[in-house]
């Protein structure tokens, strides 16, 4: 299970809402994705190249315990 959604920003700046929601550079590149590990119910960040499917980085977000 993955989700790539970016956080809803507080302000959009110059961009229109439509452009922010829909438009992107969809060419192959390293993208930051959120992946979910079902067994541990853990979301973590993965840097994946969408052209090669190579994972170039994995980042564990702070767990609730640590952040508390």
């Amino acid at each position: 299970m993955t989700g790539v959604s970016a956080l809803e920003p507080e302000f959009l700046g110059d961009s229109s809402a439509g452009a922010w929601v829909f438009n992107r550079d969809g060419s192959p590149m390293v993208r930051s994705e959120w992946w979910y590990h079902r067994a541990t119910q853990l979301w973590f960040k993965v840097q994946r190249h969408t052209g090669t499917d190579q994972i170039v980085g994995v980042e564990l977000a702070r767990t609730n315990e640590e952040s508390g």
């Binding site: 452009a19 829909f22 438009n23 992107r24 969809g26 060419s27």
Partner: peptide, 17 residues
Amino acid sequence: HTPGVLKMLGLESPIEI
């Protein structure tokens, strides 16, 4: 391959491959 061509023109679109 559309996003690659759009990129040549600096255009963005919602297309994902």
